[in-house]
Amino acid sequence: MMMKSVQRAFTVGLMLSVATLASAAVTLKDGHPSKYYVKNGDTLWDISGRFLEEPWQWPEIWQINEEISNPHLIYPGDEIRLSYVNGEPRLSVERGVQEQVMNNGVVKLSPKVREIANDEAIPAIPASAIAAYLKEGLVVTRQEIQEAPYLVGGRDRRVVFGEGDTVYARDTRTQWEGLEQGYGIYRTGEQYVDPETKEVLGYEARQIGLGRVSNHEGEMLSLRVTSSTEDIRIDDRIFSTEDRRVRAVLYPSAPDTKVEAKIIRFFDRINSVARNDVVVLNKGLRDGLKEGNVLDIFGAGEIVRDRQLGDNVQLPREKTGSLVIFRVFDKVSYGLIMESSRPIYMNDSAESPVGSY
């Protein structure tokens, strides 16, 4: 499901001071092109990967073209050019390219002037892959669960509800009295536990419906279920449906400090994940992570039998992929896997890119 609001929220933020970027050396990819014409369906990450070994380093060699309006956004039809300034690689954009077929059949490309809406800009990462996690996923504390209003029943003594039904929730703290807005109906489940410290990092709350308050008397909330993705049941919790868009400018960047995290949760996968899958990490805001941070993923080396000495040895770990953080909570984060050379498993490490700290 491609959400237009999410597409609009992703614009290509490239005007970032070099002084604030990680100091890792930029390496051009073998066989890189000298130019590339942006197409529908491209992402900033994919385009960067055509030129660079590490796509997140795009801002380090971006050269602003002051002659075009809003040079921080990239659109289908734009031409990305690779050049060198004082021996250093630079990428720049030529806004909009017009195709013209000549008499000899050769396609001639020339710049053209046009007005383009900002929401047509290509996203930094695939918006469709993370839309549901922005809209429907929460990580909450045990206290937040205990204090949230919860469903106690509905009409006709039913215990299962859906779109169009009226349900009743008890709000013992009357914290939303007088507010007129929609709320999310959530089911709490997965407990996130740090695999090393055993600290409880939070609880997964999954949105299964939306409701609008029709009445509020004392501790009792009356809600009209406006939509549902599965059966709504007694004891489901009510949380505010805040607007959870990725910030308007998503900068690919290394964390400000060294981060060493573990993958602690898959979604809709059993044994392993790969490119365009979403994972949960055991690090968050308190550990210095923020939206747009890039982490390298490492898989543990296989344990093999040493036939000469007769004991078991562990082979060195290997980099198996990379991910971008797109949503951050206090103690955990959601990341989208952007690259994977091998299957990625639970408890694999996710760390700051080598040379960035």
Rank of each mutant, 00 (worst) to 15 (best):
I47V: 13
D235N: 15
G355N: 12
S17E: 14
I125D: 00
L28H: 00
P123N: 01
L179V: 09
G178H: 01
R286W: 08
A127D: 12
I125M: 05
S356T: 10
P353L: 08
G154R: 06
A350E: 06
D78A: 09
Y345L: 15
R173Q: 13
G288E: 10
R269F: 06
K35G: 03
P55A: 06
V38N: 00
R247Q: 14
K108G: 11
I61H: 07
W45L: 07
K262I: 01
K198H: 13
N40V: 14
E99N: 06
P89K: 11
A127Q: 09
V280L: 07
Q100R: 10
Y192M: 11
G162W: 01
E204V: 09
S240C: 02
G137I: 13
N118I: 13
N70I: 07
L28A: 06
K290N: 14
G202D: 06
R342K: 12
G153Q: 06
K112W: 07
I68Y: 01
R275L: 11
S341H: 04
D156Y: 15
A127W: 05
A274R: 11
R187S: 10
N65L: 01
L210R: 11
L289M: 09
I64W: 02
N103Y: 08
V328M: 03
G292H: 01
G288D: 08
V139N: 05
L285A: 14
I344E: 03
S83F: 05
N86Y: 07
G77E: 02
E230C: 12
L44S: 03
T197I: 06
G211E: 00
L336N: 09
H216R: 04
S253R: 15
L323A: 14
D330S: 14
I122A: 02
A261Q: 02
I303E: 15
V193G: 02
I64Y: 02
K4V: 14
I47L: 10
V279A: 06
Q181W: 00
V225K: 04
K135Y: 09
N103S: 14
Q175F: 13
Q314M: 09
G209S: 04
I74L: 10
R342V: 05
F51D: 02
I270V: 14
D156C: 04
R8Y: 13
S128Y: 11
Q314E: 12
G321V: 03
S83C: 01
Q181R: 11
W56M: 13
P89D: 08
E339A: 10
D268I: 04
F10H: 13
P255E: 03
Y203G: 03
E67V: 14
E204T: 12
L250Y: 00
R212C: 03
Y251F: 12
I74M: 09
G164Q: 05
V113I: 15
G310T: 05
K198D: 12
P59N: 10
Q308A: 14
I263W: 04
T257G: 08
V139I: 12
V294A: 08
D311P: 00
V259Y: 04
N104A: 03
K262D: 10
G288A: 10
L16M: 11
L16N: 13
I270W: 04
